[in-house]
Design a binder for these strands. Sequence first.
DNA 1: GCCGTTTTCGGCCCGACTGTTTTCAGTCG
Length: 570
Amino acid sequence: MQVSNAEVAAELDKIADLLDVEAANRFRVRAYRRAARLVGAFGRSVADMRDEELDELPGIGPDLAGKIVTLAHGGHLPLLDELEREVSPGVTALLAIPGLGPKRVHQLHEALGIDTVARLTEAANAGKLHDIPGFGRGLETKIMRALASGAVAQPRTLLSKAEQIAVPLLQNLWQAEGMKQAEIAGSYRRRRETVGDIDIVVAAASNQKVMQRFTSYEAVAEVVERGPTRATVRLRNGLQVDLRVVPEESYGSALCYFTGSKAHNIKLRQIAVEQGLKLNEYGLHKGVRQIAGRTEEELYERLGLRYIPPELREDQGEINVARENRLPQLVSVKDIWGDLHVHTNATDGRASMREMAAAARARGYGYIAITDHSRRLGMAHGLDVKRLARQMEEIDRLNDSLNGFTVLKAIEVDILEDGTLDLPDTILSKLDLVIGAIHSRFDLPQVKQTERILRAMDKRCFNILAHPTGRLINQRPAYAVDMERVMRGALERGCFLELNAQPERLDLNDAHCRLAKSMGLKLAISTDAHAEPELGFMRFGVDQARRGWLEAADVLNTRPVNELLSLLRR
DNA sequence: GCCGTTTTCGGCCCGACTGTTTTCAGTCG
């Protein structure tokens, strides 16, 4: 039995939570959390790794390596059983409630035997909490408010959605008097696929004016916290926004600090300590004297590092690479020459191919591939042989009328359950590009799903595997597939994988991108656009690719059409 | 629980805000 990295990470996190509530050594707790984070973000499946390989990873020692191996093969940990005997497992859910951390959860359990959210609600409503030492009426109401507002376990917000909320908010903030600098920091700036909250950093002449403007913003439902330099609000849609105002000479260090990740920051501060310096959000200090911090660039430089782009700041090896001046030259939207996954109103798109081509051209592209659905997707009015043939003729005519821009004949063909393709080779082999996709039977076991894909790739006309895991963020998990085998299979056969840039897909994820890069497999970044504005999703795909350390050379569609076509030839 | 060109034991990042306090612990990022 193989257990996914995400599940192993969840178990490790559970141990950390339980240890936390047990008041275990906090560094021991941290070791489990670090391990959970590492495993969760790891491209390879830990189930395929040996004990000694895991031991090599930073923060993983012999003990954790053994536990990870056990978990990855469906084994039981005596430690976890023991912890769950001592602390009822439901208490970990209490940690998600704002205002409750390990100490207070422990107290709730000791004093009143509270071990579920339901019991906590009951006790709070009965007014039993404020008698517990260290608790008071204030905390009791705070907890009751949190419980009532459903603040518990809210799913993370899609980056694209966060952008729609944060950008106008920031624009509004700029109207405050005395604004000097401002940026959205946090996981938003690191371009993670989802954000938990929004962090904004500001340098301004008057803290007071900024705070005032921020807390009175029209979308604010509640001011959770408000001090002289920091404020937290909850918006009506439930999203939390933190604002931090600092002096101009601290702006760079504050921006860096609030961009994170937390793990990256800890490493930076360790480096500072090693050099006899101190790093905080106000700057880099030698004794009481500030020696850097006005800009991020200056900060990294003074620490002996090259500037690290926010997308890489995850403590995934970027610091050593920056020290050795080996940072990747990350791909950017400017490098993209065309879009290889585009739908039209021939199937479920909303614009004609002419309109999509014009929109792509207006973005400065040299080509797009028209990839409508195949017949199997009845819902989308998928193309059969006859309609596809007609579309190909139409593309020829369109190309005749275009100068310096190419519309590629292509398709997003369904990979059927047995790994055959939804249209015959005779027509597929006449196309410039064939994208294969799974739209059915997401429930196949891993071995079957993997073989289904490899079998489809066996066809010499097959070029790119679309949205390779099928996940929809917050909606549908990835289907079970051995990604390493799929990538190796693609490499051996001369085909490629897609990084689908739809904000709710972003499929492949960042770890997969790194895995592909380490194997030398190029990826196509494609929008899967169903309307003209969706061509703009390219930047989300590029952001994800940057998080995966990809450079222009690692991406298929960063080259002119002739080079692209020769790469596609099998 | 991890880690080490000062260490195999004794460290492990730093500050703001809140609430319950008489000087600070807990939580959060």
